[in-house]
């Protein structure tokens, strides 16, 4: 078990390092002169030279790369070119929006996805199943940003129940702040819930045809008791592996949805940084996203081993 863990961790660290290297190459080496790229065509040679000095571009690339990586541990990621504030502080501040948003969306997606998928499997090939499966096809086809716009049309502009966008901040009014995250989380959760429902349905159907389900029924458990106590856990083990990949999509989704609702999160920061050619900010943000995706996938892999007793012992 320990050996397995160490192997996994080493693999994870290597992947992270490689990801950082690729991002560094793409954003700082391949453009030739990042300073010129950041300042655009109207820049004077003097101002470009000044920025080059600020970025330390005269120093060797390897040193800059290591310094950048070290910055993730010391918090010294440099000054944002457009905002003129430390990148680390900027990221930390925006996380207060993106993290609660992602968790809320994930929670909604799992709750609705697993419930609907289980319902569909329990009523396989009957009307409830067809309706749920039709809904999931729609959920997969509707772009989340358009769904967000529709939600705004109905619940913000039409009914006036919830804000159309913006974020008041947690400090001012936590209640208001959570209300501001509700519509974005729903928009973000839609495609995730749809695909989770489809996966849950198919693993649940597979599980329900297992012999031990008949054993449970022979013991006197009702259909719904059997599903809850015997089928659900077995059916959700494969769903768990998908969840890591799902989280990647969810993370990418926050970039889009934050822009729909003008939420001051990481995603909006990224798009603004791209608009301002702020390479300093972009490279740290992108690595932050990628590292999160890789780490979550790694964590899910480990969780998979813990959820299934067969694997738990097999690896001991």
């Amino acid at each position: 078990m320990v050996l397995f863990l160490i192997k996994r961790l080493v693999g994870l660290v290597l992947t992270l390092l490689f990801a950082a290297l690729v991002i560094f190459l793409v954003l700082e080496i391949l453009p030739g002169d990042p300073a010129a790229m950041m300042m655009g065509v109207s820049a004077t040679p003097e101002s470009v030279a000044a920025l080059r000095a600020e970025l330390g571009l005269d120093r060797p690339a390897a040193a800059r790369f290591l310094e950048w990586l070290g910055g993730f541990f010391t918090g010294q990621l440099g000054l944002s070119y457009t905002y003129r504030v430390p990148v680390a502080g900027l990221i930390a501040e925006r996380l207060a929006v993106t993290v609660p948003l992602s968790l809320l969306a994930l929670g909604l997606a799992v709750a609705f996805g697993v419930t609907l998928g289980t319902l569909a499997a329990a009523h396989a090939h009957r009307r409830a199943d067809l309706i749920i499966m039709g809904m999931t096809q729609l959920g997969l086809a509707i772009p989340n940003f358009w769904f967000g716009i529709l939600l705004v049309l109905v619940f913000a502009i039409g009914l006036g129940w919830l804000p159309a966008g913006g974020f008041p901040g947690w400090a001012a009014d936590p209640m208001l702040a959570s209300r501001a995250l509700l519509l974005p989380a729903i928009a973000l959760a839609l495609p995730q819930a749809a695909s989770l429902a489809r996966i849950t349905r198919s693993t649940m159907l597979e599980t329900l045809s297992e012999d031990y389900i008949r054993t449970a029924r022979a013991k006197g458990l009702s259909r719904s008791q059997t599903i809850r106590r015997h089928a659900l856990r077995n059916a959700l083990i494969p769903v768990l592996t998908i969840l890591g990949l799902q989280f990647s999509f969810l993370l990418a989704g926050t970039i889009v949805v934050e822009n729909v609702f003008a939420l001051p999160g990481l995603g909006r920061l990224l798009i603004q940084a791209i608009g301002g050619h702020d390479l300093i900010l972009i490279k740290s943000l992108v690595l932050f996203y990628v590292a999160t995706a890789i780490l979550v996938n790694g964590a899910v892999d480990l969780a998979y081993g813990l959820a299934d007793p067969r694997l738990r012992v097999g690896r001991a």
Binding site: F18, L27, F249, Y289
Partner: peptide, 18 residues
């Protein structure tokens, strides 16, 4: 596997920035 580890839209954003 490595390419897959990057969220798709993020890969696209990275490439589009470049």
């Amino acid at each position: 596997d490595f390419v897959f580890a990057f969220p798709a839209v993020l890969t696209a954003i990275l490439i589009l920035t470049w």
